[in-house]
Design a protein around this nucleic acid. Structure first.
Lengths: 139, 139
DNA sequence: CTTGCCTCTCACATTGATGTCAGGTTTTAG
DNA sequence: CTAAAACCTGACATCAATGTGAGAGGCAAG
């Protein structure tokens, strides 16, 4: 398939695909006229790349990881293992952080909802105590 | 305290603090000479801002949220509630996504480890089947 | 008062992924 | 064969948060 179709299937812009290739994340065979051709597997690969991007891995990091996945017998697999472990840890930490943030957001929403209810009970407006200073304990 | 101290306490650059103020996320009183002064609470506030940033909220979004937290009696609290709920959902989705990505990474690591073990068992090198195509089923 | 450190504003640079535009070529449908 | 649609390369634009540097001024200790 050509680049437009891959883009459509993977839900990515054509521009991005060319960028991935430029970064060494994706390869293509070229037609006689120079147009890129891809296989079905590339759809999956692009999806995976997107996933890693979403996980906060940089293009640079992904570049170091993917070659190992293509041919796991490379000598660099040791380094890649290490890097994968490191990224996994980073990801776990990040997830923890997001969970805590979501909790904090929940606290704020409960507080806001409480205020809403209070207001609905015909209290005078602008009686508010700031939510942040009292409700949130950092880190 | 002055800006340098706040920066140090919150673990943020001075530049960022000025940027937060520019974006309306943070306010300061000014000394006669024009220097910014902050209170203890601002340390906490900055930590919270950082947390929201880490959760992927844009400066724009945070700007819309924080005023509601400062004085929860504002009329905009309805809109803010809605936005908070929306961001909470987005955050949840994102967390789900990261968890799945971490799982995928685990799969890859297991595969890589298996290959490592196989190699250690004195197999010839470069026998590798690509991990990605076989092991990963997208989305 | 002077020295040194901190702060001020303004402005331009950077980074990463992507958008967009221009000018030209390939492929495909009619 | 021709026109439309898709593609090519290359370059410049964008966005958000932050870095960085210049030139000037505030503030506290000696």
């Amino acid at each position: 398939m050509r680049i437009g179709e891959l883009a459509a299937r993977a839900g990515v812009s054509v521009r991005s695909l060319r960028y991935y290739e430029e970064q060494g994340l994706l390869t293509s065979t070229r037609s006689a006229g120079g147009q890129r051709h891809y296989t079905q597997d590339d759809v999956e690969r692009v999806a995976f790349i997107q996933r890693l991007y979403a996980a906060g891995l940089s293009s640079r990091t992904i570049t170091e990881l993917l070659p190992c996945l293509d041919s796991p017998s490379d000598e660099n697999s040791d380094a890649a293992m290490e890097r994968m472990a490191k990224e996994r840890d980073r990801l776990s930490t990040h997830i923890e952080d997001l969970l805590r943030t979501r909790d904090a957001l929940d606290v704020l929403m409960v507080a806001a909802q409480a205020h809403r209810d209070a207001r609905q009970a015909a209290r005078p407006p602008h009686d508010g105590v700031p939510v942040l200073a009292s409700g949130f304990r950092g880190r």
